[in-house]
Design a protein around this nucleic acid. Sequence first.
DNA 1: GCGCTACTGAACGGTTGCGTATCGTCCTGC
DNA 2: GCAGGACGATACGCAACCGTTCAGTAGCGC
Lengths: 206, 206
Amino acid sequence: MTDGPGQPERTGAGTSPRPGRPRVAGTRQRVIEAYLDLVAEQGHAATSMDQVAERAGVAKTTIYRRWPSRDDLTIDAHQSLVDTTVPPDTGSLEGDLRALAGTVMAVLARPREARVMQASLGEMLTNERLAALYRGQIIEPRIALIGRIFQRAVDRGEVPPDVDWRTLAYALLGANIFRVSVMAEPPDPAMAQRLIGWIVSSARGE
Amino acid sequence: MTDGPGQPERTGAGTSPRPGRPRVAGTRQRVIEAYLDLVAEQGHAATSMDQVAERAGVAKTTIYRRWPSRDDLTIDAHQSLVDTTVPPDTGSLEGDLRALAGTVMAVLARPREARVMQASLGEMLTNERLAALYRGQIIEPRIALIGRIFQRAVDRGEVPPDVDWRTLAYALLGANIFRVSVMAEPPDPAMAQRLIGWIVSSARGE
DNA sequence: GCGCTACTGAACGGTTGCGTATCGTCCTGC
DNA sequence: GCAGGACGATACGCAACCGTTCAGTAGCGC
């Protein structure tokens, strides 16, 4: 994985090349990867900038040349976890939710991502700045996704328009997060599928 | 609130009185209270032993004479949060769950307890020792309570014996924790009640 | 009084971490 | 070749914190 197009290295041809030695391509991504690795292994509090520098194979000075502070690196690293999935459309509420759950479960099945999520979830409960970012970048988009799925179901006439989809979404997300993060049990796709079953009936039967 | 009977001061008449100056009664509790206050206000990471000593009106030495380390104080303080709720018995699954939700909501309405729970929830995601304690002392008893409530419903013939009550419990707890801790929204008793309605129908209709 | 222990208050050693500074080297454009 | 910025390695300054130590004081039993 080289530098993604999202945050191009400033060596890009678009900007007028600055004088002096150009920045090494890939440094940015290597630092972020190192940071995410360490957070997955140790959590936020136990991860220091020196460790990040060492694992990235980069001098600490180089990191501070690109990010003004540790917090900025934290924020930036989490931006790279943002999900860009488009909401699937299977033609039914149940199908849509099952498809969505499948993608979420796929992410949770990747150990590093799951651990970063868990560590960040813990950190956001005491770090308000990270909390705001995490909510805005990670959580809210997924809830909005569920909202769109329910909206389509409403348009189809599958569920009543005043369905309390937000509570149902909280139950779906909350149950899985609770299981994985609080109870420290492995993610369970079958449980998610059962949940979706009763969520759909609840939404319909309202 | 004086020293509870759970962990009596060693000045108790039961033990043969040690020679020398007796320990000041109430110190233990004052330190724990100070610690919980500070955790509620600042979270675990930002709370130092010096702060605890100052707020408790006690020398730091005194704290270290009773707890070998910061971690031990943390663990001990959490022991005092143990839930002593008895499972309600209203005669129906829905009534029992609503009653239980009421007591949980009452706890969440107390700011300090709610904040300590939230801060500890965050901390346990990176502190394995605290996690084990928190699960055992705080989470598991509540889940067991829900389990007993469902068992009674099974005995009554209200729901089938193979009801997947654990998943439903995760949804109930998870949705509320998600709302309060992750979304940083205030606790919503009405939401809890709606969830219970859905949960009961799902349990019955299974 | 004497021994024993609890307690205070202050200081200390050691560690850790963030962010900065310095300096020599490397790479690119001109 | 030269200027100018990127880079590595290392050392700092500074602050915070943990856990300990020490000297002096206070309360209890004998």
